[in-house]
Simulated scan of single mutants.
Amino acid sequence: MTELTEPDDTPARPAPEWPQPGGQDITDPEVAQAIARLFDLPGLPVGDHETVYNGLHDELLAALNSDPAEPGPAGGEA
């Protein structure tokens, strides 16, 4: 016969502290805007994280490949 164990009543371990916006030394506004999306991750379902990371990758790649003398994708200055 298998013994049943009592439910574990210990509190869940707290999640690691997620960094807050600000304090980064990011001078490129396109990169800062892309990175800012990461601060929404803790509130999103895990299934949506891949979409956020893929979008972040695409935005950072576009910022890396853009000419700093040209306006950014939103029509503003880069």
Rank of each mutant, 00 (worst) to 15 (best):
T27D: 14
N54V: 14
L44N: 06
N54S: 15
E30K: 11
L38D: 05
P68W: 01
D67Q: 00
G43D: 10
L60H: 00
E50L: 12
E6S: 13
R13L: 12
E50Y: 08
L64R: 10
A12K: 09
P45R: 00
P21L: 06
E77I: 11
T5Q: 14
P14N: 09
R37I: 05
D8R: 03
A12E: 04
D8P: 02
L56A: 04
P19T: 00
A62R: 15
G43K: 09
Q24F: 04
D9M: 12
L44F: 10
Q24V: 09
E30L: 15
D58W: 06
A15K: 07
G55N: 12
G76Q: 12
P14E: 09
P7A: 01
V46C: 09
E77N: 15
R37G: 13
A15F: 11
L56C: 00
L44Y: 06
S66H: 15
D67G: 00
P14S: 10
H49Y: 10
T2P: 15
E6N: 10
P7N: 05
T27S: 11
N65C: 04
V46P: 11
E30V: 10
I26A: 09
E77Y: 13
A12M: 01
N65Y: 06
P19N: 02
T2L: 14
D67N: 05
A32L: 04
P14A: 15
W18M: 11
V52E: 08
L41S: 06
E30P: 02
Q24W: 01
A63C: 00
L4V: 15
L4Q: 14
H49L: 06
E50S: 07
P11T: 01
R13K: 13
D48M: 14
L56Y: 02
T51R: 15
G55V: 01
P71Q: 05
S66K: 11
P19Y: 03
P14G: 10
G72A: 04
G76P: 14
I35F: 05
E17R: 08
V31E: 03
A36P: 02
V52L: 08
H57P: 03
V46Q: 12
E77S: 14
R37W: 08
P73I: 07
T51Y: 11
E70H: 12
L44W: 07
E17H: 06
A32W: 03
F39R: 05
L4R: 15
V31Q: 01
G43C: 09
A62N: 10
A78T: 12
T5K: 13
G55R: 12
L61K: 12
E6L: 12
A36K: 12
L61Y: 11
I35Y: 02
G47V: 07
D40T: 10
T27G: 13
S66T: 11
P45A: 00
L60A: 01
V52M: 07
A36Q: 13
E3M: 07
E30F: 08
E50P: 02
T5A: 14
D40W: 04
H49N: 03
E17A: 15
L38W: 00
P71M: 00
G76L: 06
D9N: 13
L61G: 02
V31C: 02
D28H: 04
G55D: 11
E17W: 03
L61E: 14
A32T: 03
T27K: 10
D9W: 14
A34Q: 10
Q33W: 11
A36I: 05
E30T: 09
A34Y: 08
I26N: 09
A34F: 04
E6C: 08
P71N: 06
N65P: 01
D67I: 03
E6I: 08
